[in-house]
């Protein structure tokens, strides 16, 4: 469904812009249709930048990205715009996923309006349907983001992201700010939607337990480079890269704290 070849992103500085700070360095990977790729790595490792390049919210400095047979980087603005509804993103921070000035009903309806997907009445019905799909009570449609809990905001952001029935969805640490029960709810919802809509997913998290639960294959990013990629089960059973091993140990350490004597 989506394939990256030697994708890099750097920011230039210094004399004649000769100094290059690589944020993402020579990354190649692919996600098959209907599958989930888990992307792990510590904060600042370039996960979000890589994800944004995959849907061309950020311009890569080098490399090639093919989305469903289309050379993404060769597209001009209008053609790219035509492709937009097919790829969507949910951000880490529920507060940046939604426009604070709009009610969440309006936020969810907005892509339908922009893409003229439905007449007024059908649109209202569709918004109610979307609210149902993500488990939001329709009465909440009139509220603004600050009047909602973090879990409700992420549900609304998810409803907005699936409104146009995308084929590829990026989830950038969607539950980092949520507690366990809400996290489990939203992620099992994602899995249901994935099956129903045959979604291809990029799931970003620094929590390897979650990656294990959510993904078919996974990749680990460290200082912008891919240090590990392959089937999730195999990597979690036998990580080969020292950095992945440290991440796994940190995950185990926090596990061990459960039930340990004080």
């Amino acid at each position: 469904m989506i394939e990256l070849t030697s994708v890099s992103k750097y920011y230039s500085s210094g004399f004649l812009c000769r100094k290059r700070a690589y944020v993402v360095n020579d990354v190649s990977l692919a996600i098959r249709k209907g599958e989930t790729l888990g992307l792990a790595g510590e904060s600042g490792s370039g996960k979000s930048t890589l994800a944004r390049m995959m849907i061309r919210l950020v311009e890569p400095s080098a490399g090639r990205i093919v989305f469903d047979g289309i050379d993404l980087l060769a597209l001009k603005k209008p053609a790219l715009r035509q492709l937009r509804p097919r790829m969507q993103i949910v951000f880490q921070d529920p507060d940046t996923s939604l426009d604070p000035r709009l009610t969440i009903g309006a936020s969810v309806a907005e892509p339908l309006v922009v893409w003229q997907k439905a007449g007024r009445h059908e649109r209202d019905d569709r918004v109610i349907e979307l609210f149902g799909m993500v488990g939001l009570q329709p009465e909440l449609a009139d509220r603004r983001p600050f009047e909602l809990s973090g879990g409700q905001k992420q549900r609304a952001a998810l409803a907005r992201a699936i409104a146009l029935e995308p084929e590829f969805l990026v989830l950038d640490e969607p539950t980092a700010a949520l507690d366990l029960s809400v996290q489990a709810q939203i992620l099992s919802l994602v899995q249901v939607l994935q099956k129903r809509m045959n979604l291809t997913l990029l799931f970003i998290s620094h929590d390897l337990q979650l990656i294990g639960r959510m993904s078919d294959s996974m990749a680990v990013l460290h200082e912008g480079r891919l240090v590990e990629s392959g089937k999730t089960d195999a990597i979690l059973r036998r990580p080969s890269d020292p950095y992945t091993i440290r991440l796994l140990e940190a995950a185990r350490e926090s596990e061990e704290w459960f039930g340990k004597d004080k």
Partner: peptide
């Protein structure tokens, strides 16, 4: 540690069962 090992309230029990390592079953 007692509370996490033997949660009494059904909500606490559900919360612990939502953990990705303990079944990932949401309430």
């Amino acid at each position: 540690h007692e509370l996490f090992r033997h949660p009494m309230h059904p909500y606490t029990q559900g919360l612990l069962a939502s953990s990705p390592s303990a079944g990932f079953h949401p309430i």
